[in-house]
Simulated scan of single mutants.
Amino acid sequence: MSTLHEIGSAVRARRTEMGLTQDLLARISGLSRSTVNAVERQSISNLSIAKAVALLESIGLSMNVTVNRSAMSPFRKSAPLSRSALERAAATATASVSFEHAMNAKQLEVALLTGEAPQRIRSHLQVMLDEAPVSLLAKVVDQIHIEKAMPRAQVWNQMRNLAHELQCYRLLWQ
């Protein structure tokens, strides 16, 4: 499978699960709608890395080139345990603004599962939905999908509904 085919398939799948139109994705990524359409149809003959990265990052995807270090070293060090996506997203919202109370991962999870924004964390949710990197939001969606068996598209829809209720300004939620 070619790289352009993989990119096109991934973009279409993520855009669809996020509930975005090609036009809105084009506006978010800074590309034309015809470019987004051509990428998704895998009919684009030449896509620069800069355009591919802009398109992918706008929907929380990425391309990576890595060196397989495990093959080079017999003593591979294990990575430290990291916080869950829900914990990172909750902390991001709390760290960016001074709030009387912090939002925790469980409160965020309940809000995304129910679509309800309790008064105590409304400001936190608004900051997170407006300012958290889309890649982190995508990881939150993946975590809820895996742990709660909730379809990804439904989690994205809950985020969008909360963003509308909280009057978030991010273009992603239009």
Results as ranks from 00 to 15, higher is better:
V36Q: 04
N37F: 15
N37C: 08
A38T: 01
V39N: 08
R41W: 04
R41N: 07
I44Y: 06
I49Y: 12
K51G: 01
K51N: 15
V53F: 04
A54M: 12
L55A: 12
E57I: 06
I59Q: 05
G60R: 09
G60W: 13
S62V: 07
S62E: 15
M63R: 03
M63S: 05
N64Q: 11
V65P: 00
T66P: 00
M72F: 13
S73R: 11
F75E: 09
R76S: 15
S78T: 11
S78E: 09
P80S: 07
L81Y: 07
R83S: 14
S84T: 13
S84R: 02
A85Y: 07
L86G: 01
E87K: 10
E87W: 04
E87T: 15
E87V: 12
A89G: 02
A89E: 07
A89T: 04
A90R: 15
A91K: 04
A91F: 06
T92V: 14
V97K: 10
S98Y: 14
F99M: 08
H101P: 01
A105N: 00
A105S: 12
Q107M: 12
Q107E: 15
Q107I: 03
Q107N: 02
L108D: 00
L108A: 00
A111E: 05
L112N: 09
T114D: 06
E116H: 13
Q119N: 14
I121Y: 04
I121L: 01
R122F: 04
R122N: 01
H124F: 13
L125Q: 08
D130R: 04
